[in-house]
Amino acid sequence: MRDHIVLYSVLRKYFIETRRYILNMTMSIAGFLMLFLIVFFGLQSFGAEAETLKGSLVGFAMWIFAASAYSELSWNLIEEARNGTLEQLYLTPSSFRRISGYLVTSSFLFQFIMFAVFLGAMLLITGQRLALNPGVIVLIGLTLLSVYGLGYIMGGLSLVFKKVQAGNQILQFMFILFLVLPSFTDHPIIYFAPISWGNVLINRMMVGGVSLLDISMSNFLILAVNSLIYLLIGLAVFTYLEKVAKKRGLLGHY
C-alpha cells in the first residue's frame, strides 16, 4: 500500500475543501479576533501586567487552536456520515484509523497556519511582542496530541450516538479551564489535565523567551507522557466504539 499517495490525497482534498470555504474561515478568524480584543483590552483596562497580557494572548491562541483541532475529528465524522461518504472511507485498503490519522495531520497543518495568522494579527493589533522560537512547534504538536485523543473519543461517540454537538461545546469550554488552571494553582492536577502543562511550557518559551533546550527533560517527559496517554486512550475508545457501530450497523447512519 502506497501510504504517501493516500496521505497526499487526504491532504489535497482537505485543502481544496477549505479553499472553497475561505470566506467562512476568514469570518471565523475575524470573530475570534474580536472576541480576543474584548478580553485583551478588558484586561488592560483593569491594569493587568504586561506578562499577564502576553500570557492571555498565547492562551487565547492556544484555545482557538485546541478547540478547532478537537472538534475537527468528530465534526468531520458527523459530516461524512451525513453525506454518505464515511462508508466509502471505510472501504479503503488502508484502515480507517490510518485515514483519520492523515486527516488529523492535514488538520494540524491547516490549524497551524490559522494559529500563525491569528497570532500575527493579535500581535499586530495589540502591539505586544512574543519570542517566536521555531522549537515551540514541537511543544504545540505534543500538546495537541492530547486534544486529538479527546477528539477520537468524541468521534467514536458520534459514530454510535450521532448527535454529540452539545458534548463538543462543553469540552471546548473545558479547554479554557485547562488552559487557565496553572495560573491559579500548582496542584499536580496540571500534570494530568490535557493541555494545561503544555500551555505552561509554551508560555515559558513564548512569553519567558526560553528555548526548547532550556526546558528540562522531566518537564518535557511529563508533557509527552500526558499527551500520549490521552491519545492512546482516545484511539482505544474509538476502536471499541467503531466495533460497536459496525455491530449495530450504524456506520452510514446519521
Binding site: 453525506n83 454518505g84 462508508e87 472511507l89
Partner: peptide, 26 residues
Amino acid sequence: LEGNRNIYWRLTARENLEFFAGLQGR
C-alpha cells in the same frame, strides 16, 4: 451505496475521481 450519497459535494467530478483513486493508493 444509496445512489448519489457516495461522493464529495464540494469537490468537482474530476477531483472526486482523483481522491478515490488516491485512497486506493493508485
